[in-house]
Simulated assay, not measured.
Amino acid sequence: MLALNWHRPLMLLAVAMAILTLAAIGGMTIDDRTLTGLPIWTKAVKFALSVVIYSVTWAWLIAQFTRWHRIAWWAGTVAAAGLGLELTVIVIQIVRGTTSHFNFTTPLNSALWETMGLSIIVVWLATLVASLVLLRNPTSDPARNAAIRYGAGLSLVGAALGLLMVLPTQSQRDTGSAVRGAHTVGLPDGGPGLPILGWSTSGGDLRIPHFIGMHAAQLLPFVVIALELSARRIAATRPVAVRTALVKTAAAVYTAVLIVLTWQALRGQSLMHPDRLTLSAAGLVAAAATGAVIIIVRRRPPVDPATIQPTRTAPGAIR
Rank of each mutant, 00 (worst) to 15 (best):
W6R: 04
H7S: 07
H7F: 06
P9E: 01
L13M: 09
V15H: 01
A18W: 01
A18S: 06
L20T: 10
A24Q: 08
I25Y: 01
I25V: 00
I25H: 04
M28W: 07
T29Q: 11
R33Q: 07
T36Y: 15
I40S: 05
W41L: 00
T42G: 04
K43G: 08
A44G: 11
A48N: 02
Y54N: 01
T57S: 01
T57W: 03
I62Q: 06
I62M: 04
A63G: 12
T66Y: 01
A72S: 06
W73C: 12
W74R: 11
A80M: 12
V91T: 13
V95R: 15
R96S: 09
H101E: 13
T105P: 00
T105V: 08
T106A: 07
T106Q: 04
L108E: 08
N109Y: 09
L112H: 13
L112M: 10
E114C: 09
E114Y: 12
E114H: 15
I120A: 15
I121M: 09
V129M: 09
S131N: 02
S131H: 03
V133H: 07
L134H: 13
R136W: 10
R136S: 13
T139F: 05
T139E: 09
D141H: 11
D141C: 03
N145C: 10
I148Q: 14
Y150A: 11
Y150G: 08
L156M: 01
L156N: 10
V157S: 12
G158K: 05
A160S: 13
L163W: 11
L164C: 01
L164Q: 05
L167N: 13
L167C: 05
P168T: 11
T169G: 02
T169Q: 10
R173V: 12
G176V: 00
A178K: 11
V179H: 13
T184G: 00
L187I: 12
P192Y: 11
L194S: 05
G198A: 12
W199L: 07
S200G: 01
P209R: 05
I212L: 15
I212Q: 04
G213R: 06
H215V: 04
A216P: 12
Q218G: 02
P221T: 07
P221Y: 03
F222P: 00
V223P: 04
E228F: 09
R233Q: 12
A235R: 14
A235E: 12
A236E: 14
T237Q: 08
R238D: 01
R243G: 08
R243F: 11
L246G: 03
K248P: 01
T249V: 08
A251R: 02
Y254C: 05
Y254S: 06
L258P: 06
I259V: 13
V260N: 15
W263P: 02
W263G: 06
Q264L: 01
R267C: 03
Q269T: 14
Q269W: 02
L271V: 03
H273I: 08
D275T: 00
L279Y: 07
S280E: 07
A282T: 05
A282K: 01
G283C: 03
G283H: 05
A286Q: 07
A288M: 03
A288F: 02
I295Y: 01
V297F: 14
V297K: 13
R298N: 10
R298A: 11
R299F: 04
P302V: 10
A306F: 00
A306V: 10
Q309F: 02
R312S: 08
T313N: 10
A314W: 11
I318D: 06
R319T: 08
